[in-house]
Design a protein around this nucleic acid. Structure first.
Length: 263
DNA sequence: AAGCCTGACAACCGCGACGGC
DNA sequence: CGCCGTCGCGGTTGTCAGGCT
């Protein structure tokens, strides 16, 4: 038996999403919660297939996700997890709750993999440090298209959050913080992995948005809902591939000097 | 100044897993 | 128990912007 197409090929729009479409999708999710994607096109009138709607939500519109600017710590975590788990991006993404699997996958394919391959080929010692390279400096998305405009999404969501949710008691006025309010509880499918906190990765105490400072406030974070599962212990306890960490450390500027402290 | 090349990222496609009937 | 529908994941492609020659 043949697999039915995920959606009608006729009349289904493809390509970049427009603000109007995003608005419709966000509105729908606000009202019904994420899930039941099959019914989204019919319910909203969007000329998109269900998969496209789900992907757009999970990869871009979903509250709590951070875009751009992978920190060196995130670099290290991704590289380490990739070495342990392979290309299981969804699993890796659970340890970087603010990153989507698609983002991590793209980042790996376009940055980390090339870097590691290059260093393996040349040798870590003489690998030229990619000063201000991807790891530490691509904080500003180059694309100015709508789809890459965080401001657009932020405005879009912000309006809906204000309209449909009471403001958080003392949340920072950032989109991420406000968005995160409704996220975890809306995602039964993600129940196993909570969006831990709007601003921290508690399992990686050194994580900060600036990426280059150590907080040392791990204790306070531990009381949060953290999936400190066996894999975290695994991350911390297992002998980290010294080769990889050496590569990471040698592959960049001082930002990576903190990496060994993480593990 | 124009054309070409490369990198980055959003989105699509196909497949497998899972759950309901 | 098997079939069907839906969802989620990973691989891949397409498009666009910026840099380089």
């Amino acid at each position: 038996m043949g697999r039915p197409p995920c959606c009608d090929k006729v009349g289904v729009k493809k390509g970049p999403w427009t603000p109007e479409e995003d608005l419709v999708l966000v509105s729908y999710v606000q009202e019904h919660g994420p899930g039941n994607w099959r019914s989204v096109p019919a319910s909203t009138g969007l000329a998109r297939c269900s998969k496209s709607c789900r992907l757009r939500w999970t990869n871009y519109l979903r509250p709590g996700i951070r875009r751009g600017s992978f920190t060196p710590q995130e670099d290290a975590v991704i590289a380490h997890l990739q070495s342990l788990l392979g290309n299981r991006w969804a699993a890796i993404a659970t340890y970087l709750p603010k990153r989507t699997d698609n983002d991590i996958k793209n980042y790996w394919n376009t940055h980390l993999k090339k870097r590691l391959q290059k260093q393996q080929a040349v040798g870590a010692i003489f690998a030229p440090p990619p000063t201000e390279s991807a790891a530490c400096s691509f904080s500003s998305p180059s694309s100015l298209s709508y789809a890459s405009s965080v401001d657009n999404i932020s405005r879009l969501l912000d309006g809906f959050m204000k309209a449909s949710l009471p403001p958080p008691a003392s949340s920072a006025p950032t989109t991420q913080s406000s968005q995160s309010v409704s996220d975890a509880k809306d995602k039964p499918g993600h129940a196993a992995v909570h969006f831990i906190d709007a601003d921290e990765y508690p399992m990686f105490p050194a994580f900060h948005d600036d990426g280059c400072c150590i907080s040392g406030s791990f204790a306070s974070d531990q009381q949060q809902q953290v999936p400190l599962s066996s894999i975290e212990e695994w991350l911390f306890d297992e002998a980290v591939e010294p080769k990889m960490m050496d590569q990471l450390a040698s592959s960049s500027d001082e930002c990576y000097s903190l990496v060994p402290m993480l593990f």
